[in-house]
């Protein structure tokens, strides 16, 4: 029953797609896109385009996580730092990350470093701001208990702030995927975003669509993995 429920809406959508697509050039039928998918992505493109994209995403996301959590803990613990940093943080959070791409290109060129830098520049803010919030919300009595028994701060701070940190990481993941694609659309010779633009310019419409489907699948898979990790890390929080 659950399987049926889970499949009902996707099947319905594919059905509607199939009905609407009849003969349109810009919207090929599901069958054609599926064929293009197999042909395009079950090939060495996995190595030349998909994996490099994912590797850059992983690098950027991890880096953003380390920077965001590290700075977030420092800012959250110090009211002086917070007063100084908060307006600036809100400003940077408000800047839409894609507009930073041309800017970062100036500094970091057009290679891997630029793309990773773009991903970091977008992902770091939600992680940072949520971490600050989580650290600030640490229970006072629990903090006193730690001081009293000499329990190291590390134990308290990261665990206590983990619900907010995870929320930040979740937001950052979707931002990261978007930026992974956008950074490759600007100036690139490989990657998913690059390939999709290439297909579009070459009027390989079914192939272009298959790239979009692949991106959707990647996003869905990553959020599934994320949810599994989150469930383990926050088991105490969700049941409390």
């Amino acid at each position: 029953m659950r399987v049926v429920n889970a499949l009902a809406v996707p099947l319905l959508l594919v059905g509607v797609w199939w009905l609407v697509s009849g003969g349109s050039f810009y919207l090929p039928s599901p069958g054609r896109v599926a064929a293009a998918f197999a042909e395009t992505w079950f090939s060495e493109r996995v190595l030349t385009d998909v994996l490099p994209s994912l590797a850059r995403l992983a690098a950027g996301y991890t880096l953003a996580g380390v920077i965001g959590v590290g700075l977030g803990v420092a800012i959250g613990l110090s009211s002086g730092l917070r007063a100084a940093a908060e307006p600036v943080l809100e400003f940077f959070r408000a800047v839409p990350p894609p507009v930073l791409v041309p800017l970062i290109m100036l500094f970091a060129g057009i290679d891997n470093a630029m793309k990773v830098a773009v991903i970091v520049s977008g992902c770091v803010w939600p992680i940072l701001l949520n971490t600050v919030e989580g650290v600030r919300a640490i229970d006072e009595v629990l903090a006193d208990t730690c001081k009293l028994y000499g329990v190291r701060l590390r134990h308290l701070v990261l665990r206590s702030a983990s619900p907010q940190i995870m929320a930040g990481l979740r937001q950052a993941l979707s931002i990261g995927i978007i930026l992974m694609v956008i950074s490759e659309m600007f100036a690139s010779s490989s990657g998913l975003g690059f390939t999709i633009v290439l297909f579009q310019r070459g009027f390989q419409i079914a192939e272009m669509w298959s790239g979009i489907v692949l991106l959707g699948l990647i996003g869905w898979g990553l959020s599934l993995v994320f949810r599994m990790v989150e469930k383990r890390v926050l088991a105490w929080y969700h049941r409390a």
Binding site: V141, D144, T145, R159, S162, W236, Y237
Partner: peptide, 15 residues
């Protein structure tokens, strides 16, 4: 020195 706080519930680590 050990303390039992009035807000004992909040003094336990929920995780």
């Amino acid at each position: 020195t050990a303390v039992v706080f009035q807000e004992y519930g909040r003094s336990l680590f929920p995780w």
